[in-house]
């Protein structure tokens, strides 16, 4: 599972960086989104990968070793929400810029 996750993170990061370096604003946004997905998965991995373990503790005196780490899940959830808001806001700016300049080049003009 570690291998699959790391390949996924690597692929997402590589595609994200490549898209980030493209000259079209839409590609840049998708690149940033892919990068943030990669970071989110990475945070998740930092809580150690566990199969079939609940993140929520039940009752007093239960052994924390039987549970998955809940903190990265909370962090990822927060990061997803913020990332979603940023992407939406960014798309609005992009559309406005496209409307005003008539081009989707990041410099606001072709070449």
């Amino acid at each position: 599972m570690e291998l699959i996750l790391s390949i996924a993170i690597g692929t997402l990061t590589a595609s994200g960086v490549w898209l980030l370096l493209r000259p079209r604003t839409f590609q840049v946004i998708i690149g940033l989104s892919l990068l943030s997905y990669a970071v989110n998965l990475f945070i998740f991995g930092m809580g150690r990968l566990r199969m079939d373990a609940a993140p929520i503790l039940e009752g007093a005196g239960s052994d924390p070793a039987n549970y998955a780490d809940p903190v990265p899940q909370a962090l990822v959830l927060t990061a997803i929400v913020i990332g979603f808001a940023m992407t939406a806001l960014f798309l609005v700016v992009l559309l406005a810029a496209r409307g005003l300049t008539g081009t989707d080049h990041v410099d606001g003009r072709e070449r």
Partner: peptide
């Protein structure tokens, strides 16, 4: 027009910087 242009540059680089920051936090937590 100039403001939208400036905002795009501002947003892309700052968003990228917060992603780096988040990555650093994740490694630190790990």
């Amino acid at each position: 027009r100039a403001q939208l242009d400036g905002t795009l540059k501002y947003a892309v680089l700052n968003l990228f910087s917060t992603l780096l920051f988040l990555l650093a936090v994740a490694i630190l937590y790990g």
